[in-house]
């Protein structure tokens, strides 16, 4: 999967917007959205929020977690914890990235947030790599990693699956040899 595909999935997440126009309900296959009336907050999917925002027809209410204090605590927790901390949203990285590029003027401290989110991403990536290494070194058959986001899984997937496949092949050769030796 391309990162763009993951982003597409993330665009289904709901965000709150305050429109400055009036419109009745919009009927989508995935559900109804609206009605819109000026000044009244309403939940819409992210892709719609971005589309309306680009036409300057609304103000985006950033989600609760997209806040400097909250993100900073998250970062500290992430550093302190040995395991992956729970993200406020399964599409944390994508939603933050989209909102920060398209609705910068509605988010206080957007630049600082961007840096913090990048930091969290890097900490988690390093953690993921050391965990994978541990997993390979132990020759474990399975591992459990909670709270990984889809984007994180997606970036490591091609490399990880191919390496584990190679590892598996080598181990098959080894067990084949062992069996061969014992039958002689």
């Amino acid at each position: 999967m391309e990162p763009g595909d993951v982003e597409f999935i993330a665009e289904k997440e709901l965000v709150k917007i305050v429109p400055n126009f009036a419109l009745g309900k919009i009927y989508f296959i995935s559900g109804d959205v609206g009605p819109f009336s000026p000044g009244l907050p309403v939940d819409v999917p992210l892709w719609l929020a971005i589309a309306i925002k680009q036409r300057q027809k609304c103000r985006v209410h950033p989600p609760e977690w997209l806040d400097v204090d909250k993100i900073e605590t998250m970062k500290d927790d992430e550093i302190a914890s040995e395991f992956f901390t729970e993200l406020p949203n399964p599409h944390f990285c994508e939603v933050a990235q989209l909102l920060l590029t398209h609705a910068t003027d509605n988010i206080p401290n957007a630049d600082l947030l961007r840096t913090l989110i990048k930091d969290i991403w890097d900490i988690r990536a390093a953690k993921l790599r050391s965990n994978i290494d541990k997993f390979v070194k132990l020759q474990a058959g399975h591992a459990r990693l909670d709270n990984l986001s889809q984007m994180e899984i997606n970036t490591i997937r091609p490399f990880l699956t191919a390496s584990l496949d190679h590892m598996y092949q080598l181990r098959i050769s080894q067990s084949y040899t062992e069996r061969n030796m014992s039958t002689q």
């Binding site: 790599r129 994978i132 290494d133 390979v136 070194k137 020759q139 490399f159 390496s163 190679h166 590892m167 080598l170 181990r171 050769s173 080894q174 084949y176 040899t177 062992e178 061969n180 030796m181 002689q184």
Partner: peptide, 27 residues
């Protein structure tokens, strides 16, 4: 390894260990 050789078991283990050692760096 598909052929019999008196050192094949050591060699098989060596292949697995080598990849395991190098994995982190490649990643």
């Amino acid at each position: 390894l598909t052929l019999n050789h008196n050192e094949s078991l050591q060699m098989a283990k060596c292949l697995v260990l080598t990849f395991m050692e190098r994995f982190r760096k490649i990643m």
